[in-house]
């Protein structure tokens, strides 16, 4: 975990309310794992005061040198609005990599494994990094992308580029399956083969994750979810981002114990 000043290499609008920022941060890029996040100080002044957490969307660089981290963000408020106006070449404070990421299957050699990646909205961000890591490990993956309309479908091309099969669900049916991505998951599970052991990796709004967790429990599939909670620090000091878990009276922290949890562990 490091607090660095990172130079903005790209800050492009990729669709209506979504932006992608590429940051030159070799130290972070080298140590980051899929599912981890960074805390970004969006403004220079006192308002907005707190940093904003963003999943690490991708690690990139030229040649063999992985020196950049990318974040994918949606314009939702004061912080992201300021971020969207940041100019290429300027620097911002980035703290990371934070938290515990997805647990990847160790090896696909002994028995067939596959992954189902389920994304809701901007929750797709960490799953692209995960897809790239799975591809490196030669683990087959399918991505289910949920969005409000066809205009807000994100990253389908990124998944395809890593050899991942893509299915799309839109709330209004303007592209792909009509309905929630959880409905699409049920449909995919009905038609899929049962030759491999599957793990579901999901990131998106809390109600969606709850539904995905329910489906996986029913189908006896391992499910890992990446949770988002309001947080101040991102590294376990403020204790703001509590997550209620089943096996103990108390809470775990989304920032330090998560943001990725086994879905069976959460008291939904």
């Amino acid at each position: 975990m490091k607090d660095v000043k990172a130079k903005i290499l790209e800050n492009e609008k990729i669709s209506a309310d979504y932006y992608k920022m590429t940051l030159d941060a070799p130290g972070l890029a080298r140590s980051a794992a899929p599912g981890q996040f960074v805390q970004v100080r969006c403004g220079d002044g006192l308002d907005p005061l707190l940093r904003r957490p963003f999943s690490i969307h991708r690690i990139s660089g030229t040649g063999d040198r992985l020196s950049c981290i990318e974040i994918l963000y949606e314009l939702v408020g004061k912080g992201t609005e300021i971020l969207s106006r940041k100019q290429k070449g300027t620097c911002i404070d980035v703290l990371g990599p934070l938290g515990n990421g997805f647990i990847l299957p160790l090896s696909a050699k002994r028995y067939p494994l596959s992954a189902i990646l389920v994304a809701g909205g901007v929750g797709v961000a960490p799953l692209v990094f995960l897809a790239e890591e799975l591809a490196r490990k030669k683990i087959k993956a399918v991505a289910l992308i949920g969005a409000r309309t066809k205009k807000s479908v994100l990253c389908d091309k990124d998944f395809k580029d890593t050899g991942v099969e893509v299915h799309i669900a839109t709330d209004d049916g303007s592209r792909g399956y009509k309905g929630f991505v959880s409905g699409l998951l049920q449909k995919v599970l009905r038609t899929t083969n049962h030759e491999s052991r599957k793990t579901v990796y999901a990131c998106g709004p809390q109600p969606m994750l709850k539904r995905i967790a329910g489906i996986c429990r029913e189908k006896r599939l391992e499910c890992q979810v990446s949770l988002e909670e309001e947080m101040a620090c991102g590294f376990g000091a403020c204790m703001g981002c509590a997550v209620k878990v089943k096996d103990q009276a108390g809470y775990k922290l989304a920032c330090k114990d998560g943001p990725v949890f086994n879905a069976a562990e959460i008291a939904w």
Binding site: E229, A232, C238, G240, C241, A242, Y251
Partner: peptide
Amino acid sequence: PGNPMPRVCETASGMLNAI
């Protein structure tokens, strides 16, 4: 165990907490 979520929120140049 502490309080239920949400426990923190940002306000103008400040933050509220109820950990």
